[in-house]
Amino acid sequence: MSVKSRILLFILSCFAYPATAQLSILPVFGDRTIAENTWYVSTKGDSVQFDNIRFYLSDMQFEMDDKTWIKDTVSAHLIDVFDPASLHITTQKIDLKRLKTIHFNLGIDSLTNVSGALGGDLDPQKGMYWAWQSGYINLKIEGRSPRCKTRKNAFQYHIGGYLQPFYSMRKVELPVKNAGVNRNQGAIQQGVILNVDFSLFFGNLSIATQNSIMMPGKAAMQLADYSTSMFSIHATKN
């Protein structure tokens, strides 16, 4: 970021500061928060451990109960489950009591995929971009399971692809009303809590046979379908 834009951002943040809301991402595996070097057991009985989980949330929009829509000012957020700073997204002020539905894309849309060198979270230096077959990786899950008869028992899912028929970005729509109880009460004071439950992803998967999916195609499309089920709104607070 240039000096000029940093100063501009600073000035803007002076005015914008009181008018922001937080969207917090809570990565869990069933009823446990995801941490490094920790074993989890899937509903299929597979033990899994995670080294790297990253994904893009893009084109976030807030649908209010009066049918107005508020668009997030940032086009894409790179969420890194093991980087706490990335788990809190600051958006513009929204009246949480009137928030009806949250819309976002899991991954990056096809237009952005063909737009050349982009910056910020979309900079290829973030390691979420394929070199030999251009395109963003929408979701990356890497870890280990004794069930995988691979080197170091590793599994790796790099889900991406922007060309039909293997366009792997997924639209997610989450109604805010009738949200459940916040498991992490007290930890997050304000805003929307977006629960991402990876046990739902692994509940669909046969990791013994499906343990390395690293390019666009049918398999990636199937995993992309599984991945949308992970998201839910767990609580909102004002």
Binding site: N113, V114, S115, G116, A117, P124, Y129, A131, W132, Q133, S134, G135
Partner: peptide
């Protein structure tokens, strides 16, 4: 770009030889 057209934009082309 490339013989198979795998790279979709001139800006992204250097990434391929770089990471190969």
């Amino acid at each position: 770009f490339m013989w198979d057209g795998g790279v979709n934009h001139l800006d992204m082309q250097p990434l391929a030889p770089l990471s190969s």
